[in-house]
Design a protein around this nucleic acid. Structure first.
Lengths: 290, 290
DNA sequence: TTCCGGGTGAAGAAAATCTTTCAGAATCAT
DNA sequence: ATGATTCTGAAAGATTTTCTTCACCCGGAA
């Protein structure tokens, strides 16, 4: 018989290591919509997780059940116990963490930030930024400052795969002027600047604008002075219970931008990515993984 | 089709009068242990209510369903809506953007990711990681791969301000072995590795472990193979409607970690930050502004 | 008593679900 | 590179579930 002392969710997580790739995929689907996804038929579940039904059977057997129906019955029992006990409401948060634990407070703040920033975002601005970045005629420069450098690099990395003519500029280094030598009118400069706004970044923006560049700015809710020069401005709230600011919201916006630009440039991007894959294959940089 | 505006429980009660004796008995059983009793097979349910299976079929058809499976699917949907967390459903949507706009879909996915990852995080792991990083006796190495390099740099940047003895290692570069020359037993290696797990990263982890280092791993829900060597593993969901993965969840966890470590090391960190401020003042890097 | 009509469940047919087998694919170790 | 090992899903078989049919039961009316 199976161990009754832990929930199936806990058992799934505990056994995660001993699961195979397809089984993990399945476990993930189960946990994602727990426990409802496990209450449908094995066929539905398998389809939802994009694995085969034998995989489902094998996994539940690894968990100690004789078969899928027994597993499902256990899920139902658990659900029954959970429904009749309203105390278990608080599994939104980290299990067993006190109400005011930093992880919970932090998460709450971040979700709040995302919420607020998203409701304030200007849709035409987003569309305009995508159009600019998807235009192969324009070259793209990505610039970040002290803190935002990492985020700028993140955007740069993706853009570089998506399209040609992308350059990363470090606004804090003394070399950024060199990088902008190639800047032509109509090119796009993406600038990240959050509070403790940097003088170098502002100078960079000013110079770029003088040369006829289009500027896309990622900043915080108080808006960097670069805003004056920018064609598109994205403001993300950055307040969290920490001595530091949170760039999570900006990262999310950047990722959304990447997703949309990729969508629009797919025809030309496809070849680039296949090319890249080919190079990866030769260098064996990555583990083969289905 | 069936009416969507009321729950099945309400419909059962509304139709109670028009039901026959055996059907009422069944409806009563259903309501008594709602909705779990309805999620078992029709045979179980019939037995539990002490009626026959045809009675069950007839009743659900009276309620407007084509058959028992459809009734059961409706129950599952209802349960799903009831279970899923209100936070996820909060209307974080961009104003005036269509339902399926990339920004909305993306945001929804990210909030779901955060939610999901947080419920699975292991609190002792978090505490352990903080303790390791807050220990001034241990040196800290931060390593990222192709995609995660930027995130690693982000963590490195903060850690460097918080404490002494922090090094940034690029697991993809051929130089990482040099960086680890200084590694002593007890030192901490923070590794970022998400799917398309890199061979170099795995090697790095193995080597570090052999040398007696403690390893903190940030990875995705499928867990990098580095996990085998890690003392603390943080899994963040990375699935978004994009050709790329989202590192937002991992960034959030890293930020939370930074916040807590800063809290713990504040006594020694304070002096460092004041020192840094002094240097900033002299170089006039930042605008005097708030 | 006999007939009638709706309600009920036993039994079997139809349909699905669940399990097992097996061969190809991917991975790992040599 | 090569062979051994493990993983995976297609397909077929075993089982269960679901639905339909139909005979029976029961209370009431002629």
């Amino acid at each position: 018989m199976t161990d009754q002392s832990q929930t199936i969710a806990e058992r799934l997580q505990a056994a995660f290591d001993s699961l195979t790739r397809a089984e993990r995929q399945l476990a993930d689907t189960l946990l994602q919509n727990y426990p409802v996804s496990g209450l449908a038929s094995i066929t539905h579940l398998a389809k939802a997780a994009d694995v085969s039904t034998p995989t489902v059977v094998r996994m539940v057997q690894k968990l100690g059940f004789s078969g899928f129906p027994e597993f499902q019955a256990a899920l139902r029992h658990e659900l029954e116990a959970r429904i009749s006990d309203p105390i278990t409401k608080r599994d939104t948060w980290v299990q067993a963490a006190p109400e005011g634990h930093i992880l919970n407070r932090f998460t709450e703040a971040v979700i709040g930030n995302i919420h607020q920033s998203l409701t304030q975002i200007d849709l035409p601005t987003f569309e305009r930024a995508c159009t600019l970045l998807a235009d192969p005629e324009r070259r793209v420069f990505v610039a970040g400052g002290r803190i935002t450098h990492a985020l700028a690099e993140y955007l740069f990395l993706h853009m570089q795969v998506l399209r040609a003519g992308v350059t990363h500029v470090h606004a804090m280094a003394s070399t950024w002027a060199h990088d902008l030598l190639d800047l032509r009118a109509g090119d796009v400069v993406v600038i990240f600047d959050v509070r403790r706004y940097e003088n170098g970044t502002l100078k960079l923006a000013e110079l770029a604008r003088d040369r006829g560049a289009r500027i896309i700015l990622f900043t915080d809710q108080w808006r960097s002075p670069v805003h004056e020069f920018a064609d598109c401005t994205f403001c993300g709230r950055i307040a969290v219970p920490s001595a530091w600011d949170s760039l999570v919201t900006l990262m999310m916006m950047a990722e959304a931008l990447i997703a949309e630009v990729q969508e629009r440039t797919w025809d030309s991007t496809r070849a680039r990515m296949e090319d890249l894959e080919g190079m990866f294959d030769r260098t064996r940089l990555f583990r083969k993984f289905t």
